[in-house]
Design a protein around this nucleic acid. Structure first.
Length: 443
RNA sequence: CGGAGUAUAGCUCAGCCUGGUAGAGCGCUUGCUUCGGGAGCAAGAGGUCGUUGGUUCGAAUCCAGCUACUCCGACCA
């Protein structure tokens, strides 16, 4: 992408409404525009990050056996009356009347709808297990939206729903998502710690939150630092073996959010040097809730014994749009965002220091072409801005690697290769710089 | 939903107390000079002061209603 043809409205100053750093940086970097309380447009740069996160989420869901579909944002009220949640959900649910005065709602979640899909098609225990997911916009009419996309009213969520014959099988489905989440967050470049959670209004008796540690997080968390340091299971994990040991390795270590915290247990179970009390942001939440929806909605399958029984269900959410904010909270400095490479809107930027210099332009164009051809997401700053302004913008939007091309370097046959996170700068030939970019992409 | 604020140019804000023809910086446009860390000079464009009503000869300014947004608390991916 050539910057001269791109849409990147960066701001020097943070709008006064933004209070936390991720919100300020997202506005300044031209990623989002607020359209109302808790409602945002995703501008091109922000949308790129959203897509990168979605891609990783999809890959890890599929690896764990979940299958993608897409349900609508608007749902008829009938399904929610069946489950009893139409009245129970309260004012957080945005209710709408259509032109025929039929009661509709903008989905805050999709348990009812997926259960309806399931019961329409699935009859036999032989068809299980099934795990269906989608990535769709949700609306929850929060009393107090705040913190930009971290607590918007409209937000993008990946929600998966598992269906099993038995409690034991349902727990394995739960463990698969548990491990998939660890892998997902790890690939995104985050340390996300699973913590036992309240099941809340969704109901059920097995639930974990995945918490990203960040100084600016909304809730206090307490955990064993060994849990934070433990690597994710990784892509070689066999998802179709008994995953309980993999899960237990983590769940046996102490980790709790403020509301579940037990100071006495914390101190007795965790050695002093590993007692970590920090702040965190919830980016995922998984639930096992049995037949809470399948029983009232009659989502039943015929078992081996010829009898019908409601299926065992779980649901698994990742706040995709919230993750964008969470990543920034966890990874920024006073100059701007520091994107983990996997989710950076652009992986590399080619910065021309003199767009009116033919030799410089020639080197830039060559670098840009080569990177494009190699499949790298490259931003080419071909504008006539001054060097200082260009560097500031690149640091603000957090491009991980820069190839800086200036007249002096071109005469000497070198370009400058910079790394955003390390703050490093080296001179090398263009070929070497491109090789470095490709190497970090492969890593 | 309880409490507290804010609303003036694209952005950040001043002006309001003490009513009298709308201001700054940044950004934008044009020209010249610049060009390795958000350039300098010059000339410009840009606002029915959130909205409705009231007080007044006169309202950005005083008063009231409404709306929107933000913050603190309770709730939440």
């Amino acid at each position: 992408m050539r910057l001269s043809r791109y849409f990147l409205p960066v701001l020097k100053e943070a709008p006064a409404d933004a209070q936390i750093v991720s919100h300020q940086l997202m506005l300044r970097a031209g990623m989002i525009k607020q359209n109302g309380a808790g409602i945002y447009s995703w501008l091109p740069l922000g949308m790129r990050v959203l897509h990168k996160i979605e891609k990783i989420v999809r890959e890890e869901q599929e690896r764990a056996g979940a299958v993608e579909l897409l349900m609508p944002t608007i749902q008829p009220a009938e399904l929610w009356k069946e489950s009893g949640r139409y009245d129970a959900y309260g004012k957080e649910m945005l209710r709408i009347l259509d032109r025929h005065e039929r009661e509709m709602l903008y989905g805050p979640t999709n348990e009812e709808m997926i259960t309806d899909i399931f019961r329409t098609y699935v009859r036999s225990y032989k068809q299980l297990p099934i795990n269906l997911y989608h990535i769709q916009w949700k609306f929850r009419d929060e009393v107090r939206p705040r913190f930009g996309v971290m607590r918007g009213r409209e937000f993008l969520m990946k929600d998966a729903y598992s269906f099993d014959n038995t409690v034991e099988a349902a727990k394995q489905s739960y463990y698969r998502m548990f491990c998939a989440y660890l892998n997902t967050f790890s690939r995104i470049g985050l340390k996300a710690v699973p913590m036992r959670a309240d099941t809340g209004p969704i109901g059920g008796d097995l639930s974990h939150e995945f918490i990203v540690l960040a100084d600016t997080g909304e809730s206090a968390v307490f955990c064993d630092s060994a849990l934070v340091d433990m690597p994710a299971p990784g892509k070689d994990l066999n998802f179709w073996q008994d995953l309980l040991p993999e899960v237990e390795k983590r769940t046996k270590l102490y980790a709790a959010t403020e509301e579940m915290h037990d100071a006495a247990r914390f101190e007795s179970e965790v050695p002093a040097e590993r007692r970590l009390s920090a702040r965190g942001i919830e980016v995922g939440h998984i639930f096992y809730f049995g037949t809470k929806y399948s029983a009232p909605m009659k989502a039943e399958v015929t078992g081996q014994d010829g009898k019908n029984a409601p299926v065992e269900m779980g649901s698994y959410g990742i706040g995709v749009s919230r993750l964008v904010g969470a990543i920034i909270e966890a990874s920024h400095d006073d100059k701007g965002v520091i994107w983990p490479a996997a989710v950076a809107p652009f992986e590399v930027a080619v910065v021309s220091l003199r767009s009116d210099d033919a030799d410089v332009t020639k080197v830039c164009e060559s670098a840009y072409e080569q990177l494009l051809n190699a499949g790298v997401d490259v931003l080419y700053d071909d504008t006539g801005e001054r060097p200082g302004a260009k560097f500031s913008t690149m640091e603000l939007i957090g491009v991980p690697e820069l190839i800086v091309v200036g007249p002096k370097g071109v005469k000497a046959g070198v370009v400058e290769f910079r790394n955003r996170e390390a703050g490093s700068s080296e001179e090398m030939t263009l070929e070497a710089a491109i090789k470095r970019c490709l190497a970090s992409k492969g890593a």
